[in-house]
Design a protein around this nucleic acid. Sequence first.
DNA 1: CTAAACCTGACACTGACCTGACAACGTCAA
DNA 2: TTGACGTTGTCAGGTCAGTGTCAGGTTTAG
Lengths: 228, 228
Amino acid sequence: MGLPRFMKYLLVEDNQELANAVSSRLRLDGHVIEHAATLEDATAFVEIGEYDLILLDIMLPDGDGRTFLRNHRSSNLDTPVIILTARSQVSDRIGSLDLGADDYVTKPFDHAELEARCRAVLRRKAGKSQTVIEMGGVVFDPVAGAISVRGNNVSLRNRELRLLELLINAPGRVFSKQKLADRLFSYDEDASENAIEVYIGRLRKHLEPSDIKITTLRGLGYRLDHDA
Amino acid sequence: MGLPRFMKYLLVEDNQELANAVSSRLRLDGHVIEHAATLEDATAFVEIGEYDLILLDIMLPDGDGRTFLRNHRSSNLDTPVIILTARSQVSDRIGSLDLGADDYVTKPFDHAELEARCRAVLRRKAGKSQTVIEMGGVVFDPVAGAISVRGNNVSLRNRELRLLELLINAPGRVFSKQKLADRLFSYDEDASENAIEVYIGRLRKHLEPSDIKITTLRGLGYRLDHDA
DNA sequence: CTAAACCTGACACTGACCTGACAACGTCAA
DNA sequence: TTGACGTTGTCAGGTCAGTGTCAGGTTTAG
């Protein structure tokens, strides 16, 4: 990777525990992290320093993270921003689209996943801001929560969308049904594993015209593949 | 590959029976296990010794395992942590990912599965996201659940894959049929030793075009060799 | 040479997975 | 409130890939 090795991050997050965990993780890789717990702090930080990447929580004690993002963009600053958002309805994301978020990660997240996203965004920064994921005839816009297959807009339901989101962000990787269920359902919902099978089926139907297919690995899980 | 063969584990678990089972199991592979039954003990252990991997129960008599995890992370220690959690505590294990756990296993678990997770995490740690193992024309990608032999993708079944994983992680080491059976099958499955012979045969067939051979040592077991 | 250990093609079975149908639930407008 | 509508998870029935056993053949140690 031709990227500079060490980056400077700004983490805007009010949950102290989560902030500590993320910070210490990223520091292990040699990055510099500064942490703001409020919008006010974040604004102050940005005025003083320069950052390579901003990790931004949406729900903050003194306001909506999107206001920050909007102000940031209107100051003509192109620092890439990754949104940290709670397990959410699609509607939460709509609106971030025009504000110029570069990517988003839904809590809870694997740290490996967060790191991967950061690297991806930083790599992209060399070129232009690209938020949509395109693959095998499928265009997936995570921030808007919409997909199109071979040019046709397809409206996915909430669960289908989130399932696709999980799979397409790690193509070629196996997800056990257990893991998918953990990510799709919150703890008070107890859905059977069959629910996952059903959703995989529904999603497959939507993806039929594309070159993306979801492979079943019996006893292991599912994997999204891009067949040539 | 490249990994030290013997690791030092810290097991934090208050259930004595389970702790013994896990310990003795891992010791069979030559690893060193230290066992802490309380948060207090665990903290003491971590202050004194260095560990390659920590297995951490969430519910402990003197507090929540996540407290430990949080402290551990904020001390900038990057020892990988795998959470052990009961099936019902879904929210626990999800939240733990945010706190910097590397993986989680739900009780009750197969020992085979626990071992697989441990290997995966250790590999990830050592190889900096280089998770694939390459050897004698065989590329083994545990995350994708796939292998390729001389460039051709080969789809292995669940059991074949796990058998290969065991062998390729310790090339040159002899595994008795008994040991392989222990690793491949859980307690409630009682397969004959012949099943192992069958799987070895099937795996050999897949590996035929490669430079990897599985050698039979009569009366002792099997060994994976890389012949020049 | 003999017995034990190992190999392997064939086969039956089980349970993991798929899918159409449906009921429960929430939403929205009237 | 009512009813129409979209979404969601369960269920039951069917399919089939993966699995382990077996029987008979082959190899090896002593």
